[in-house]
Design a protein around this nucleic acid. Structure first.
Lengths: 221, 221
DNA sequence: TCGCGAGTGGAACACCCCGTCCGTTTCGGC
DNA sequence: GCCGAAACGGACGGGGTGTTCCACTCGCGA
């Protein structure tokens, strides 16, 4: 960690940026990340590192040279999704109609979780020590807290709704599993619509998104 | 399996009932089950068998002699909870007010899941090959299907509610985690109240159970 | 073209888990 | 008390996973 501290940092970097990698190494790194994102989305983050390496066509050592630990790989793999998530929150907060903004952010974040099983794990509790995520998350929650207040004042959101309810709904949504990604997304959509109905200040009796067959027994993705 | 088929089954049994065990063996068996229930409720069913054995004060071999596989231990540990769950369903189906029956069963099953993390796993997807549970489950789902129809006809339940929604709500409820069992139960209670509001045919604006602080970051049970 | 160091993959290490074997201990009928 | 069978626990095998070692390869500047 503390080596090379006196040398000029121009040439020797602890973790070289992708641009300074040798061409084959950069290709491998890109391929690893791409494979990791796909496989994490499909099967969650419990896939063995070996499997990621195998599907990326590299050996375990190569994987570990670029990402010194599994947590590092997961963090890097979900960086852009986290950014997208934050952008979503920012857009919602900027919406002139706070209640519509809140509904939209709930819908979209829930959809992201339904589409990417690994993202859910990374988001909810996977690596508490991944400070990157925790910081952004607390910032987002703070922004959402303001949005909630404004949505109440605007009369769209029930007055007894609190920030913890939002967290609760996201967690609950992530508990829904189905036999395929499509089914999970569809189920999540109906679930969220049900949610929004119950947290709305005004009665709303429009039709719900269609129900989805949920086996509950086995073969859940 | 097919040994001793001609002998009188009075004395030699493949798996001796607890009464026919030697006193020390029976004590050990009881202690193992008790420990398993406690530890499964606290930490889920992913605890190693060794840990169960250690906390029961026996060796791994003793544990495996009584419960030849981990699945057998889990099945046995949750047998009475499964029975309680089925009794709950039966009571709900027998309720003269089907909508009240449905509400009650949702509330109570959700509470059971919040209280016992291992039960959730055993219930939702843990061992698909545990035929014991699967059979009872399908029977219960069938009974609930009738209850749902009657609750709709009675005017309490929304007409667009289907059995899969019930499954979905149970799954969603099991996604809620908190820092302690008490917090999980409280959060689940509020969640279910929110649910019932959204699936009710009639608007209902009574107060909700209190909200619960949900960290979302780490240290979730 | 050449050389060197970054890069690589396969084997290996360390650890954890489920489930089994076997020599020893203990219950309980006589 | 005696003694045989039931019961016991520590050690072991097999498999899986995160991570590292090491001899070899190969991109790329000179």
């Amino acid at each position: 960690m503390t080596e090379h501290q006196s040398e000029a940092a121009a040439t020797t970097v602890a973790t070289p940026s992708p641009h300074e990698l040798r061409s084959d190494a950069r290709d491998n790194r890109d391929r690893i990340l791409q494979v990791a994102r796909t496989i994490f989305a499909e099967e969650g983050i419990d896939v063995p590192m070996r499997e990621v390496a195998r599907r990326a066509g590299v050996g375990p050592a190569t994987l570990y040279r670029r990402f010194p630990t599994k947590e590092a790989l997961v963090t890097e793999a979900f960086r852009e999704q986290m950014a997208a998530c934050n952008a979503l929150v920012d857009a919602a907060v900027a919406d002139p109609d706070p209640w519509r903004g809140l509904r939209t952010v709930i819908e979209q974040v829930s959809a992201m979780h339904a589409e990417d099983r690994g993202f859910t794990a990374a988001f909810v509790s996977a690596f508490p020590q991944a400070v990157d995520f925790a910081q952004e998350r607390s910032r987002a929650l703070q922004a959402l807290s303001g949005l909630i207040r404004r949505a109440k004042d605007a009369g769209g959101l029930r007055r007894d709704f609190v920030l913890d309810d939002l967290v609760m709904l996201i967690m609950a949504n992530s508990g829904i599993r189905a036999t395929s990604r499509e089914a999970a997304v569809a189920a999540s959509r109906r679930f969220v619509a049900l949610q929004l109905r119950s947290i709305s200040a005004r009665p709303n009796d429009g039709p719900l998104p269609p129900a989805v067959r949920l086996p509950l027994l086995a073969a859940l993705r």
